[in-house]
Every structure is written in structure tokens, then in C-alpha cells.
């Protein structure tokens, strides 16, 4: 074989492998999508071809499942978490990016480190405290602990974006007579806006998918969507068609959000470690 033929041969193998990989990546998602549109009977008969029905999506919002409540809880908890996290993180990120602070490295490492502390460790004291304060099973309590996982992401990510804004623009504005606060409001915030938006979406996804905190801290009123999945365990086994419909309601909005910010997705996740 000549070099070129070998190259073509490899190319065919590569494309085959890529297609197989793509297929494997999609199977579980497709499987859920299919099941969500099947009737109860069809699910248990393993049908690949079936008459699709929207019935499941109606059922999950009815009693006794009331997925609507969970949807509202998830939206409020994730949304409010982001509304708190982003402004606070932006201030800190600006300061870390533009000034030399005492203990700057220590603070940054600490913030980074909290990201890696196992959630089970954090949640025990909160559980005890919330039990005493009556905050168990409230959205407020959930929002407070969610800040713990979202803040480090937000700070590091936004810092990365602000690092990318050229210093000269700011200095020019200062020379022209702006105060620091004006510079932040008129120059930095507009320029960092896409970054803040990206970080916001990112944090929203994390808070939306959060599981352990909600599992421990809620049981009725403040239950979020991922925990809601447990509702579909019945005496006779799991109700897969309903589980799948709920699964779609959980994952579809996140897919859309993730695709909107896909350019920054990886960068955000590694928090500037790999660039």
C-alpha cells in the first residue's frame, strides 16, 4: 500500500470509530426519549416501533406526581442562586484580576479547594443547623447551600473573562477622568457581559442538576426535579415511561442552555486550568 492508500484506509477506520462513539454517547439519551413517548404497555414490550403518545407528559404533571411544583422549585432555586452568585462573584473576580491583594493566592486556592470538598461533608452541619432553625424543606435553605457549589465556579470563570479584557481600555477611561467605580460600571461590565451571561448559565445548570443537598434537605415542599425522579417508583416497580418523561423535562432545558454557551463550556469547567 502506498502512503496515501494507508491514510485513506485509516480515515475510514477513524470515521467508523467516531460514528460508533457518537452512537454510544447518544444511546442512553435516545432510549429515554423513546420511552417518554411510549405507553405503559409499549415500554414493557421493548418495542422499537410504536405509536408515540404525549400522555406521559400530562400524567407527570397531575396528582399524585405534581411535577409542576418541582419544576417551579428547581427554577426558583437555581435562578435565585445565580442571581446572588453572579454579582458577588463579579466583584471578587474583578478585584482578583486587576489588583494585587494580600493573601491573593491563598484566597484563590481556598476558593478553588472548596469546589472539591465532598458535598456530604458540607451538608452535615447544614442539616443540623437547618433542623434547629426550621429551614429544612425550604427553598431558602437550598439556595444557601447551593451557593457553596456555585460560587467557586463563578469566581474563577468570571476572573478568566475579565483577565481577557485589555487593561488599556480601562486605563484610557481613567486618564479621561472616570473613577474606578465608573470604570467598572461603564467599561468592564459591558465588556464582560457575554462572560457573565455564560457564567450565569453555567451556574444555573449546576444548581439545576444538584442532587445530594436537595435529597437531604427537602422532603415535600421544596423538592426539586432530580429528587422528583424518585416519585416514580411504584409498588410494582419503576414507572419507566413516566420517569423518562420527567427525565426529558429535566435534561432538555439544560441541553439547550449548554448548547448556547458551548464555546466556553470546557473552559468554564476547568476554571482556566487548561487553555
Amino acid at each position: 500500500m502506498t502512503g496515501k492508500q494507508r491514510k485513506q484506509f485509516w480515515n475510514v477506520i477513524q470515521i467508523t470509530l467516531i460514528l460508533i462513539a457518537a452512537f454510544i454517547m447518544l444511546i442512553p439519551i435516545i432510549w429515554i426519549f423513546l420511552a417518554a413517548f411510549k405507553t405503559h404497555v409499549d415500554v414493557y414490550q421493548l418495542k422499537l416501533f410504536f405509536t408515540p403518545t404525549l400522555e406521559n407528559f400530562g400524567t407527570v404533571f397531575d396528582a399524585p406526581y405534581n411535577l409542576g411544583n418541582k419544576l417551579i422549585n428547581s427554577t426558583i432555586v437555581a435562578g435565585v442562586t445565580v442571581l446572588f452568585a453572579i454579582p458577588i462573584a463579579t466583584c471578587a473576580a474583578y478585584s482578583f484580576s486587576r489588583f494585587r491583594l494580600r493573601f491573593e493566592t491563598s484566597m484563590l486556592v481556598m476558593i478553588l479547594a472548596t469546589q472539591f470538598v465532598p458535598a456530604v461533608v458540607i451538608i452535615l452541619p447544614f442539616f443540623v443547623m437547618f433542623r434547629d432553625l426550621g429551614l429544612l424543606d425550604t427553598r431558602l435553605g437550598l439556595i444557601m447551600v447551593n451557593l457553596a457549589i456555585v460560587m467557586p465556579f463563578a469566581i474563577w470563570m468570571i476572573k478568566g473573562f475579565i483577565d481577557g479584557i485589555p487593561l488599556e481600555t480601562e486605563e484610557a477611561a481613567m486618564v479621561d477622568g472616570s473613577t474606578r467605580v465608573q470604570v467598572i460600571r461603564n467599561i468592564v461590565l459591558p465588556m464582560a457581559a457575554p462572560g457573565l451571561f455564560t457564567a450565569g448559565i453555567f451556574c444555573f445548570i449546576i444548581a439545576w442538576n444538584e442532587f445530594l443537598f436537595a435529597l437531604i434537605l427537602t422532603n415535600k415542599d421544596a423538592v426539586t426535579l432530580p429528587i422528583g425522579l424518585a416519585l416514580f417508583k411504584a409498588e410494582e416497580g419503576d414507572l419507566w415511561n413516566l420517569l423518562s418523561a420527567a427525565g426529558i423535562i429535566i435534561m432538555l432545558p439544560m441541553f439547550i442552555l449548554a448548547l448556547i454557551i458551548r464555546k466556553y463550556f470546557v473552559q468554564g469547567m476547568t476554571m482556566g486550568a487548561v487553555r
Binding site: A22, M25, L26, P28, I29, I205, W208, N209, F211, P226, L229, G247, I250, M251, M254, F255, L257, A258, L259, R262, F265
Partner: peptide, 12 residues
């Protein structure tokens, strides 16, 4: 496509 599984909640 690879972004999709990553945006999926681990519980799911």
C-alpha cells in the same frame, strides 16, 4: 454532541 451527556444531571 459530547456536550449533551455532560449537561445531564448525574442522577438522571
Amino acid at each position: 454532541l459530547l456536550i449533551l451527556p455532560f449537561a445531564m444531571s448525574p442522577a438522571l
